[in-house]
Amino acid sequence: KTVHVDGVEYRFNNPEEADKFVKRLVKEKNGNVEVRGDTYHVE
């Protein structure tokens, strides 16, 4: 899984860790998540 945040790319081998990371980011930023294939885009 890959997570894109503000143009920075984070790669996770463990999908659960990627999910936790995304949830935390969305809370912090009050942002939205767009999923494209295996990539999460957080804005």
Rank of each mutant, 00 (worst) to 15 (best):
K1Q: 07
K1V: 15
K1E: 04
T2H: 04
T2N: 04
T2Q: 02
V3R: 00
H4R: 11
H4I: 15
H4A: 05
V5L: 05
D6K: 01
D6M: 03
V8W: 04
V8R: 05
V8A: 02
E9P: 02
Y10D: 05
Y10F: 06
Y10L: 06
Y10C: 09
R11N: 07
F12S: 03
N13P: 10
N13W: 02
N13F: 05
N13G: 05
N13M: 08
N13H: 06
N13Q: 11
N14L: 05
N14P: 00
E16M: 04
E16W: 06
E16H: 02
E16R: 01
E17D: 10
A18V: 03
A18Q: 03
D19Y: 11
D19A: 03
D19H: 05
K20A: 15
K20Q: 14
K20S: 13
F21V: 04
V22S: 00
V22F: 09
K23R: 06
K23Y: 00
K23S: 13
R24C: 15
L25Y: 04
L25I: 09
L25N: 02
L25M: 10
V26W: 06
K27P: 04
K27R: 11
K27G: 10
K29E: 08
K29A: 10
K29F: 15
N30Y: 12
G31C: 15
N32A: 09
N32S: 14
N32M: 12
V33P: 08
E34C: 15
E34I: 14
V35S: 06
V35Q: 05
V35K: 10
V35A: 08
V35I: 13
R36C: 15
R36D: 12
R36L: 11
R36T: 08
G37R: 04
G37C: 13
G37A: 04
D38H: 02
D38I: 02
T39R: 08
T39S: 13
T39Y: 10
Y40V: 14
H41G: 07
H41S: 07
H41N: 09
H41W: 15
H41R: 03
V42M: 07
E43N: 11
E43H: 09
E43M: 13
E43L: 12
E43V: 14
E43Q: 11
